[in-house]
Design a protein around this nucleic acid. Structure first.
Lengths: 150, 150
DNA sequence: TACATTTGTAACCAAACTTGTTACTAATTC
DNA sequence: GAATTAGTAACAAGTTTGGTTACAAATGTA
């Protein structure tokens, strides 16, 4: 999920700085993120299901944010990416010893102990919005984030 | 890294409850973790380099904890697993657009914004020791964690 | 209507990664 | 010397990932 999370954030930050209501095509986004338009559209499917973006087909179509960038957090992105995937930590061995129940007990125990770690990370992710990402990008790109610059 | 982290924790918890100074063979550990002895030995290589365990070859050989279980945290395990691997979050796209520097800027920005999230998770992992994992296992395995039970 | 554009999605391929396995060497004990 | 056990290389099967092509559906425009 590594690159997907990063690419999704990249895309959302791009959409955040685009003209409001002006759809951005998967081709432009792919060019900016350095990937293939179909990869972007695949990602969009996930983001759309999560209610973070809206797309429109046809000429002049593309994708826009479904709500203000200030109301989309990195946790939303994280959850969207995670929804279609296994847990960040797949606790427990794959083939616990059938000969006793230590395997399943280990699973439960690790889940319980990892829980706070994951919760802490979620809280930190929830504190960052896509708007902040965009603003941070603006600071680091002195000339601003124009269409030509990615 | 999913299963490796879990299996490593499993192994360390097992070693923590073993007789102190009594080496445990990779075969026994593999049987408990439901994997292959060679997989365990591979993992041991990493844990040994991280200074968490010590091994001894030959008849009666095996592996013991290199320091008390109360002084080994899940963060130590996490770091050991991560040392030989890419970051948890590979921030930044794989192929940033060469045509401008948004790619690298995005990379820096995401690293800065994800930083607190990763730090929060690390702090939570550092708060849990292998001894706690072992004790938690003991609570959940009423009969205790005997050699026969995994 | 015809056509160009753009998304949605399936299908496929190649590369990378993971896990299990075999095989062999080195070290250690008896 | 024999048995045991770690260390490690090498390989195979399975899974995952990312990129790509192909094509249908939708939408705007002439």
């Amino acid at each position: 999920m590594n690159t997907r999370f990063a690419v999704a954030t990249h895309i959302l930050a791009y959409l955040a700085h685009a003209q409001p209501g002006q759809p951005v095509s998967s081709e432009v986004l792919a060019s900016s993120a350095g990937t293939h338009p179909v990869v972007v559209r695949r990602l969009m499917s996930t983001l759309r299901e999560a209610g973070l973006v809206q797309s429109q087909r046809g000429a002049g179509g593309g994708t826009v944010l479904a709500r203000p960038a200030a109301e989309i957090t990195l946790l939303d992105v994280f959850r969207a990416m995670q929804a279609s995937e296994p847990d960040l930590f797949q606790v427990g061995s794959t083939n616990p010893n059938a000969h006793c129940d230590l395997g399943s007990v280990m699973q439960e125990t690790l889940e319980g102990l990892f829980g706070p770690a994951i919760e802490a990370m979620r809280a930190a992710l929830a504190a960052v919005t896509v708007q902040q990402v965009m603003q941070e990008l603006g600071k680091r790109l002195p000339g601003g984030c124009t269409e030509a610059s990615g």
